[in-house]
Amino acid sequence: MEKTEKLLRGLELVLFLLVAALMILSLYCVFRVVPNEVTMGAVQRIFYFHVPSAWVAFLGFFIVFVASIFYLVTRRLLWDVVAHAAAELGVLFCAIVLFTGPIWARPVWGTWWTWEARLTTTLVLEMVFVAYLVLRTQAESRAQAARLSAVVGIVGFLDVPIIYYSVHLWRGHHPIVFKSSGGQGLDPIMLKTFMLCMTTFTLLFLLLLAMRIRLGLLQESLAELKEQGSIPGA
């Protein structure tokens, strides 16, 4: 545990410096360098945050899935801490997606919300993992929380493509905002900025994940100390 903690501390420092530099650069590019989109105007710039958030949210839920399998196989608490951390971040970034989407949709589509396949799937996915987090708070013991939530993490993730397909059959398509073929095509500077934002958000996600995992490990050590009675009055 202590070794993992030290490793995470080092990783956090490197990631923090990287993210700080890249975030400033990303903000500069998004607001100063990139030209306005022809039809949508300034509001299209929100996609430099919206799409990367969606990507890291899905990455988070995928990590929950993998870590849950590892936990059930190895029964090492570290994997459960990883799954919990990734689920929290997944829910956070998914919420960012659900907030930034409507801000864009209102001026462009003329409505805050529409029951379209990707929107609905994102909302349902958020609900699945909110339930995952609620389940963790309701379990009767630490080991039970880990075991039951691992099962939900696996089933929940397996469900994602099925939910997407089902909603897709029910309702239509998502707009393709970054179109690469036909018409004028995408300005190369837009694509570059977009890739930069993707990198920044991925690193930001990894930084937050490392911090949350370290916090989780500290919580575990604290609980262990309390159980041993090493902390008076606890």
Binding site: V124, V128, A131, V152, G156, D159, I162, I163, Y165, S166
Partner: peptide, 8 residues
Amino acid sequence: LLLPAATP
């Protein structure tokens, strides 16, 4: 737990 997961 069940309602979102059973959407399909």
